[in-house]
Amino acid sequence: MREELLRLIENNSRIDTKELAKMLNVTEVDILNELSKLESENVICGYFTLIDWEKISVEKVTALIEVRVTPQRGQGFDKIAERIYNYPEVKSAYLISGGYDILVILEEKSLKEIASFVSDKLSTLESVLSTATHFILKKYKDMGTILEKQHDDDREVIS
């Protein structure tokens, strides 16, 4: 039930526990116990809402920043990654194979704020060799979800 439960809430964290219990043929208490276990094991790391800010005209600028760094003796990339991800502006940080080392996703209110984060904070870190910043122009799909409203049920009502 563990994996199936996770698959269910992965796409809908608001689904209520009573419903989950019925769908998985267990009691609601079982669901609550399993969820708190998963939370305490840090398998479930958080519950979030996918918001398309553009639809309510709130300015948000998202940038992907490729960062090349020098790994540190004994600590590899983890130490420098920590220096980067601790900034609250950093939305995501991944260690990446290929042409650069760390991919940083940044979300700010303006282009200027992103520019100043990169030049003042990120680039000045000792082990950072270079950065390349890419701004996101349009979001089509995020977290497995297409942001444009999908069409309704087109089926005949009875068949």
Binding site: E4, R7, L8, E19, A21, K22, M23, L24, N25
Partner: peptide, 13 residues
Amino acid sequence: EAYNQRRRFLLNS
């Protein structure tokens, strides 16, 4: 898997 969840949901309802 989705059908089965709904099936159980209906039967329990």
